[in-house]
């Protein structure tokens, strides 16, 4: 049963990214990505990480991709889609991608993944996660809040200016 769920989610996730590669419409791309990220959230859940799953759906699939959609609507670029890349470059990229995939899998083998399953995840519950965030990673957490503030101010400073001012 779990395998069925995993396979469906994996298929949705990979399939929507692949569709994004072939689609030539930016709005569709963004929607494909929403689908991909939502199914990723499901996969996170399968990995005993319910909090990460929730954040993934809320922040990524929800907030960030909505931001993308806003941007796409602002540009209103319908009918102005770029030409396809050259065949040689495509072949080169696919070749490089294959090499990269092989390397990544090899790297995965070298890591502990080779010895399957070190037992049930110890950090599954959200309470423990919260404890970690506010004790060992307190400084990092606080700095992240500062980062977000900086991003907020930066975005206003960059895009907030009218032309000619």
């Amino acid at each position: 049963m779990v395998w069925v769920v995993f396979l469906i989610l994996s298929f949705l996730c990979i399939g929507s990214v692949a569709a994004m590669i072939f689609s030539r419409n930016q709005a569709h791309n963004a929607l494909f990505l929403v689908l991909s990220f939502s199914s990723l959230g499901g996969l996170f859940g399968l990995l005993d990480a319910p909090f990460a799953a929730a954040v993934q759906v809320l922040v990524y699939a929800g907030a960030i991709m909505v931001l993308f959609l806003f941007a796409i609507m602002m540009f209103n670029l319908r009918g102005e889609l770029p030409a396809r890349v050259k065949k040689a470059r495509l072949a080169l990229t696919v070749g490089l991608g294959t090499v990269l995939l092989a390397e990544l899998l090899l790297a995965g083998r070298k890591l502990v993944l080779g010895s399957p399953g070190a037992g049930p995840a110890a950090g599954g519950d959200t309470a423990r996660l919260g404890h970690f965030l506010f004790s060992d990673y307190l400084y990092a957490f606080e700095i992240t809040s500062l980062l977000i503030l900086a991003a907020l101010v930066g975005a206003l400073a960059l895009a907030g200016k009218r032309e000619g001012s």
Binding site: L92, T93, L96, V99, L100, E103, L104, L106, A107, K110
Partner: peptide, 16 residues
């Protein structure tokens, strides 16, 4: 970016 990718692949290969 392509140059960057080639570099990253080479580096990763070297690490492995």
């Amino acid at each position: 970016a392509l140059a960057f990718l080639i570099g990253a692949i080479t580096f990763l290969g070297f690490l492995l």
